[in-house]
């Protein structure tokens, strides 16, 4: 997976570099540059072909749509990753807190119930072998 992404990245970088060079050629065009320009245009088609070939290798890559919003706004998409990680950690801590609280509550409740209703609780325990 990593290598296919790296391939795609390298291919896109080469494509962008080619387009940048075309930009330089056409921004102050010289008649002798026509052949080079033609080569660059063919290289551009070739680059698109290569990117098209690589799409099969990255079919299973899922990108959250929100990341596109970050990029469209000219923001660093790593900020999205950072936000996600921070949110996940906060939620993880919150849920762990809840689970711990319920465990304590259960233990206390069983204790109190065994004091108040010892017979019923022993029946309950007998039915619930895991308690």
């Amino acid at each position: 997976m990593a290598s296919s992404l790296e391939n795609l990245e390298a291919q896109l970088e080469m494509f962008i570099e080619n387009v940048r060079q075309i930009h330089i050629i056409v921004s102050d065009f010289q008649p002798q540059s026509q052949n080079v320009l033609n080569q660059k245009l063919q290289a551009m088609v070739h680059g698109l072909q290569e990117v098209d070939k690589l799409k099969a290798q990255v079919q299973d890559v899922h990108v959250p749509l929100e990341v596109f919003d970050y990029i469209d706004q000219g923001r660093n998409p790593q900020l999205y990753t950072k936000d996600c990680i921070e949110k996940a950690l906060a939620k993880n801590e919150q849920v762990k807190g809840k689970i711990d609280a319920y465990r304590k509550f259960k233990a206390n409740m069983l204790l109190e119930l065994s004091r108040s209703f010892p017979t019923e609780l022993s029946k309950y325990r007998a039915l619930r072998s895991d308690e």
């Binding site: 962008i16 706004q73 000219g74 660093n76 998409p77 950072k82």
Partner: peptide, 24 residues
């Protein structure tokens, strides 16, 4: 990600990309 302060601009993530990429 938690340690360092990330730069806000897209260009800091893609420094090799030519042109103005920080604009919406």
């Amino acid at each position: 990600f938690s340690g360092k302060k990330l730069k806000e601009q897209l260009s800091s993530f893609l420094p090799t990309l030519p042109g103005v990429i920080d604009a919406p």
